[in-house]
Structures are given as C-alpha cells and as structure tokens.
Design a protein around this nucleic acid. Structure first.
Length: 109
DNA sequence: GAGATGACGGGCT
DNA sequence: AAGCCCGCCATCT
C-alpha cells in the first residue's frame, strides 16, 4: 500500500510509455488527475530506485530536455540521455528531443 | 501543524 | 528568443 494514491497513479501512467517515446511531467500530472502538479510528479519519480520497473527516463520537461537534479546534475542527465538513446530517442545539438518524432501520444492513442 | 523543498509550467520582461 | 519570477502540488522535516 502506497502512502499516497497519487504516486501509484503517476507510476501507472509512466509505465504506459512505450520504449523509444517520451512525455512531459505536465502530461503525467494531467493523467494522474492533477494537471497543475507537475512538481509532484517529479517528486514521485525522484524516490524511485534506478532498478525500478517504472521507465522514469521517458519523462522529460516541457522544453524537451532532461531535467538536471541531484548532487551531480551533469552525470544524472548524461545517464538518462544514454538510456533514451539506447531506446532510439535522438537528441539534437541543443540536447533537445524532437516531440514531433518521439512524443508519446497518450493512452488514447 | 507550519515552514521548507523540488526531476515543472506559464507568463512577463 | 532567453531568462527571471511566481504559483501550483504532494511530500518531508
């Protein structure tokens, strides 16, 4: 039993993201029932272990970039980017992901 | 119970 | 176009 149902919802929707596709914190927040709680989504993903079954790496910010976090933001971004590239997600020279090509359309399709 | 935190987003400058 | 400030939320201390 999770402490809050919100976390469970976030994890549920993030698990729906197929490999090679990405979505935003805002989109997950909306799916979880709180469109104005993208920060809470980040908080939920923050507590996940690296070996979690939740593909947290497929969630990026609205700018199409990986969000820096932790004591070593550069390393964290590097590792997430590597995971995504391994799935086929491409980054441009500005470290941005092209949503036109890799954005998750959502549960509806 | 109150104050502070953080992997965001929108609006304004 | 890029950067700064404010507001939003759930959670933690």
């Amino acid at each position: 039993m999770p402490e809050g149902n919100f976390y469970e919802r976030v994890y549920h929707w993030v698990r729906q993201i197929p490999p090679g596709q990405v979505t935003t914190y805002g989109a997950i927040a909306a799916l979880a029932g709180n469109p104005m709680a993208p920060r809470a989504v980040g908080y939920a993903l923050r507590v996940l272990p690296e070996n979690s079954d939740v593909p947290w790496q497929r969630v990026v910010n609205k700018a199409g970039k990986v969000s820096p976090r932790g004591v070593d933001p550069g390393l964290a971004v590097f590792r997430q980017r590597k995971l995504l590239e391994r799935e086929g997600v491409a980054f441009d020279a500005d470290d941005c992901i092209d949503f036109k090509r890799f954005a998750w359309a959502g549960p509806a399709g």
